[in-house]
Nucleic acid binder design. Structure first.
Lengths: 151, 151
DNA sequence: ATATAATATACTAAAATAGTATGAAATATA
DNA sequence: TATATTTCATACTATTTTAGTATATTATAT
């Protein structure tokens, strides 16, 4: 059970955008540089983010992307579901239809997977981009502290 | 984030073995039939399970596999970690060495992934094979009830 | 007009995963 | 002791998924 690089890239791109929230638009090439993400791959991701309304865009010179919501209102779970479809999916993505519910009896682990997904959701749906920013700030201040001790 | 079929197969194989705990050995071919798992694929999985001590085996006629521990003492998380390495791994599996911890500051999401893995662990390390058996029994009894109502 | 930057789509490459094939080693039983 | 049965070991192939690239179009600021 691995997360995809696409998932990592998406989150990092959106986080990078959040650093520039309420400022001017950010070019894909800048996001790509800042977060070390292959440009053309990121372009595709940005289109997907736009299609589902997380970012807006402007073409041409001084164009770029920006978030449509405040960093405090975008949660990691949303982005991951957008990009990866589910937080925790079965191998061949069975839609949650009647047939699979009937088959659930045969699948002895059916309920377990749901519990796992819920557990993941309880983490990922409670952490916003703003929270990540805060955490990052804390890590950095701790680092400074360490440096003082090490002088 | 998908679970692998190998993970599903492993759990189902071990569960099937748990149904025969304290009885005679079970052949791989029987496990394969009962759980509808490709035989040669399952053989490989069984070897891995043996190597790490979850099952014992006997070759030749009347040979087969059996669990080394009681179903109540084998938890899903153990099996999954064995088969998939981690409950929730990064894309390119970085070992948890000093370098990655230093890089953690750069990776703004580092802590998040750890939290997610913990959340998954709290589910998967608390459910044993015996628990799955119990759940299964409950599902079946509910089904019977439904059938009565439907007459 | 021109340069810039997003949009769209199709393609290729690489990696991971799933599954198969072949044969050797051990052992029960006749 | 011969035979059938079963695990053990390893190497291989095929499939699918994921990652990444290429090319060309559309919109817009200057």
């Amino acid at each position: 059970m691995k997360r995809s690089t696409r998932c990592d890239y998406s989150l990092r791109a959106v986080l990078e955008l959040s650093f520039h929230y309420e400022k001017k638009l950010v070019r894909v090439s800048d996001l790509s540089d800042a977060q070390d993400i292959p440009l053309k791959f990121l372009e595709q991701i940005m289109l997907q983010l736009k299609k589902s309304g997380y970012v807006r865009s402007k073409k041409g010179p001084n164009g770029g992307y920006s978030l449509t919501k405040a960093p405090g209102d975008i949660f990691l779970g949303e982005i991951i579901r957008l990009v990866d479809d589910r937080l925790f999916a079965p191998v061949l993505s069975e839609p949650m239809n009647r047939l699979t519910t009937l088959d659930a009896a045969r699948d002895n682990f059916f309920g377990v997977w749901a519990e796992v997904e819920d557990a993941m959701a309880s983490v990922l749906d409670s952490i916003s981009l703003a929270d990540i920013q805060k955490r990052q700030a804390e890590v950095l201040s701790k680092k400074k502290l360490n440096m003082v001790y090490h002088i």
